[in-house]
Amino acid sequence: MVAPRRNSHHKGLRQGDPLAPFLSNIVAEALNGLVREAVKRNLYRGFSVGSNRVEVSILQYANDTIFFGKASQGNVRAIKAILWIFELASSLKINFAKSGFGAFGMTERWKSDAASWLNCSLLSFPFVYLGIPIGANPRRVQMWDPIIKKIPKKVEDKLVSLQRKFLWGGVSQQQNQTIQQLGDFKDNEWEWNLSWRRPLFDNEITMASNFLRDIERNTIQRNIRDEWEWKADQSGQYTVQSAYKLMTREAIEGERDPGFEELWNLTVPIKVAVFALRLLGDKLPTKVNLYKRQVEVADRRCPFCGNMEEEAGHLFFTTTKSFPIWWESLSWLNISAALPIDPRQHFLHHGSILAGGTRTNRWKC
């Protein structure tokens, strides 16, 4: 009988071998087992999280390992011993130069001594792990900026779409339904039957009660046809023209203002008149207006004085750059007056202080 020859292996797995991840998991599980045994023997104390007080002592992701535990000298020594045993058992070396140590609620001296004991660097909070700032305030917008900038465009569009559906979807399950579908007559009296897609929040209960109180004031007629009616048109049917007139009604009424009619009669280039119209209507993109439109503005102060907010009245009439121009203009017209700060009132004020003649012609260019 001949004993079979034993094969001896002299090389490990090649880079990119499909078995490499499994080997990495086997080795990492050994470190996880050492931590569990240390916790079991009360040599290492983890960190309890959640209402159920689940103890977390170690987290492993890919080739990264994070130890969690109580900030104590005993835990620091336990981590040192666990890593030393892991090196002996696996023949691997821990790269302490790329490792870091941090703690909350401890003095800088204690954290520095602990980092020196572990032969690693001292972490400064917040630090970035997997692209997420750790230790930062999650309520601050600046914390999420680096994460949002890395989101692909398609993913961003999908998130925006889901957000819009959630925000504009409302809590009602009966949107775009007629009154006939929202209730029924019982004993010759109308009874509403409203349904919500989820339980109402505390702040929504009051709104829902007020809504029910408002609709109960209306009498539902059994013999009248239930249909949608567009009140902006006499026919009751929706038309683009009626919607346009409804949306621009206030603007049309504003254009009939004598002051605005005077603006269009001035002999100035059309782009100047349009700019003046936007100024009188407070439609210019000043910092204050941009902030009102939910545009992020770092500093709303005026770039000239640095004290007041940059709004149209201040920017064009009271800054150190614009105020002398108005005084020179009034001197040229040979008048004196206290000019309003509001752009529209400022414009109309010129028509009231000028009686006519040469001064009026000068003002009208």
Rank of each mutant, 00 (worst) to 15 (best):
M1D: 05
H9R: 04
H10A: 12
K11H: 09
G16K: 05
L19H: 04
A20E: 03
P21M: 01
V27R: 00
E29K: 06
L31C: 07
E37L: 06
E37Q: 13
N42D: 15
N42P: 00
Y44N: 01
Y44S: 02
G46V: 02
S51N: 10
N52G: 12
I58A: 03
Q60W: 01
Y61L: 12
A62E: 01
A62L: 04
A62T: 08
I66Q: 06
K70P: 00
S72K: 04
Q73K: 10
G74M: 12
N75K: 01
V76M: 02
I82Y: 02
I82M: 15
I82A: 01
L83Q: 02
L83R: 02
W84Q: 13
E87S: 15
S91Q: 11
F96G: 01
K98A: 13
G102T: 05
M106V: 14
R109P: 00
W110C: 10
S112M: 13
A114H: 04
A115F: 09
W117K: 08
L118Q: 06
L122D: 07
S124E: 10
S124A: 13
S124D: 08
F127R: 00
V128K: 06
Y129I: 02
G131Q: 03
G131Y: 04
P133R: 11
V141E: 07
M143T: 13
P152C: 06
K153W: 06
D157P: 00
S161Y: 07
Q163A: 15
K165G: 04
F166I: 05
W168A: 12
V171W: 07
N176I: 06
Q177H: 09
Q177W: 08
Q180I: 11
Q180D: 12
W190P: 00
N193T: 12
N193R: 11
S195C: 12
R197E: 14
F201N: 04
F201T: 10
D202N: 05
M207F: 11
N210I: 10
R217S: 15
I220Q: 01
W230K: 00
S235N: 09
T239K: 05
V240F: 06
S242Y: 03
S242L: 02
K245V: 11
M247E: 11
M247F: 10
R249S: 15
A251C: 11
E255P: 00
P258S: 15
E261A: 14
E262Q: 09
T267D: 14
T267A: 14
P269S: 11
K271V: 09
P285K: 02
P285R: 01
L290S: 03
Y291E: 08
K292I: 04
V295Q: 06
E296H: 04
E296V: 10
V297D: 03
C302S: 05
F304R: 09
N307C: 08
H314K: 09
F317N: 08
T318G: 01
S322D: 03
F323A: 15
I325R: 04
W326F: 07
W326Y: 05
S336T: 09
A337T: 13
R344L: 13
H346C: 07
H350P: 00
A355I: 11
N361R: 13
